[in-house]
Structure formats: C-alpha cells, structure tokens
Design a protein around this nucleic acid. Structure first.
Length: 108
DNA sequence: TAGCTGACGCAAA
DNA sequence: ATTTGCGCCAGCT
C-alpha cells in the first residue's frame, strides 16, 4: 500500500470508511490516556470489530494517529509495529500512563 | 463476484 | 494463566 509517513491521514483519499473512522477516533486520544481496541470499535459503530481495529492500526503510518495509545481490554500492552510491545510501553509511560507488570492501570 | 487468509483482539471456558 | 472459537476488514486469487 505504501503510505507516506509524513502525510496526515486527513489528506488521504484512498482510505476505507472504516479505517478513516478508526484513525479519526485514535487521533483524538490525548497523551496520558488510552483506549482499548474494543472501545475504538464501539466508537466507530462496529462493536465486534476490535480485531479489525488492530489490523487498521497495524498498517497506520500517519504521525497524527497515535496508535500506541490503543491497548488490550485486559490491560496488556498489545502489539506495536513500530518498535514492538516494549517501545509501546515506554512511550505510554513517557506520556504518564501507569503500567504495572506489563499491564496498563486503567483509571477508575 | 465469491471464497480464502492473515491480522497490533475479545470474552468465555 | 492459557486456550479456544469467534467476528470484522481488506487484500489476494
């Protein structure tokens, strides 16, 4: 597919409705907070598409789509194409997300 | 057009 | 803590 990393997803036309919706939601996640794949799925109107959300984020190359802020529903960090789970956790900690034993501590 | 497969998940068992 | 079946999207044949 070959997506230029420096391009904002909002300028791209060859995105599916689903992926555009996913990116739109994820782009709004603020530093220090996270959403689960399932929560993103709900927000885009496809409650059972959590896995598809993961796939969409796996291929994301846009800087305005912080896919490291999307984690698993059980608190596990999840995969991360750009640097792996480790880098993902490091980034989240850097942003103030609390992580204990490889699990995100969801705020109450 | 229809079918098959991989994929950064989820919930139940 | 691990395993299993499921479900959705998108790319390929």
């Amino acid at each position: 597919m070959r997506i230029p990393e420096e391009t904002s997803y909002t300028r791209v036309t060859n995105l599916s409705v689903f992926r555009r919706a996913v990116y739109r939601i994820v782009a709004r996640i603020r530093p220090g907070s996270v959403l689960t794949y399932g929560q993103v799925a709900v927000k885009v109107g496809a409650p059972r598409a959590s896995r598809a959300v993961g796939t969409a984020l796996a291929e994301n190359r846009y800087r305005d789509v912080p896919c490291h802020r999307v984690v698993r529903s059980d608190g596990a960090i999840g995969e991360y194409a750009f640097g792996g789970t480790n880098a993902k956790a490091a980034r989240l900690r850097r942003e103030g997300v609390r992580i204990w034993n490889g699990r995100v501590i969801f705020p109450k």
